[in-house]
């Protein structure tokens, strides 16, 4: 096991089930991604603080500590991306994990492609945010360009007119590119206070926003819906024509 964090990224796998842990490890190693692992919460916190991994894959159902507690602990000292793995189909625990600071989630059984896709998205976000420090005035993803300085949005170099709420939503999503934002978080950011009665409004604005910026209405590329949970903006390679 290579515990050194050298040129590539290092992923911490927190999973108590041996076969699943083996599956993740072999998959990662097959794709040349370095990893370390922990089989319980205490070990996870130790490993995370010792090696400061780039990404944590965290199973919520651990024998000793509740996964959400681990997220809260890690967030006290680090913003390292955390991808939560859950066997429960309930939305509530995923939302809790996301609100506690997790970046993304997967439900068991997940496919290998899904696992790799999530890691890829997170790593890309990691690299761009390192470069841009998350404070840049202009954010681009594919053919979408958001100029926060002037408050203008372009798709294919054509300016798109958004309502104030649509624009606010887009900015919140863009600043958290690659991260799943819960409905609660988005409503707090756009409307100021959370109220569940705003959820339908959020859906409508999201739908109209996507209609304005997505090239293909049936197949969104910029904004992903996580039904019952929230939304995520994806960084697309630049200028795909």
């Amino acid at each position: 096991m290579n515990k050194e964090k050298s040129n590539g990224v290092l992923i911490l796998i927190v999973e108590d089930d041996l076969p699943v842990r083996n599956l993740i490890r072999t998959t990662l190693e097959a794709h040349g991604i370095k990893n370390i692992w922990a089989k319980n919460g205490a070990q996870a916190i130790l490993e995370a603080s010792t090696y400061n991994p780039d990404v944590v894959l965290l199973d919520l159902g651990l024998p000793d500590i509740d996964g959400n507690e681990i997220i809260k602990k890690i967030r006290t000292w680090s913003d390292m991306p955390i991808i939560v793995i859950s066997a429960r189909t309930d939305d509530a625990d995923k939302i809790e994990a996301l609100d506690n600071g997790a970046d993304d989630y997967m439900i068991k059984p997940f496919s290998v492609e899904e696992l790799l896709a999530r890691i890829r998205v997170t790593i890309r976000r990691l690299q761009t945010s390192k470069q841009e420090n998350g404070k840049e005035a202009v954010i681009t993803s594919g053919n979408l360009k958001i100029d926060m300085g002037s408050g203008c949005v372009w798709v294919d170099d054509i300016e798109v007119h958004l309502t104030p709420n649509e624009y606010k939503l887009l900015c919140v999503l863009a600043r958290n590119m690659g991260k799943v934002l819960t409905q609660k978080y988005l409503i707090e950011q756009v409307w100021g206070v959370y109220s569940s009665s705003e959820i339908p409004s959020l859906r409508v604005f999201m739908a109209t926003l996507r209609k304005k910026i997505e090239p293909d209405s049936g197949n969104s590329i910029y904004i992903q819906t996580h039904i019952g949970i929230g939304y995520r903006m994806l960084r697309q390679p630049e200028q795909v024509k």
Partner: peptide, 14 residues
């Protein structure tokens, strides 16, 4: 059941 108001298009996409 946990009933919510969802967009049919979102459900289809999911």
């Amino acid at each position: 059941l946990s009933m919510t108001d969802e967009l049919m298009d979102d459900i289809l996409e999911e």
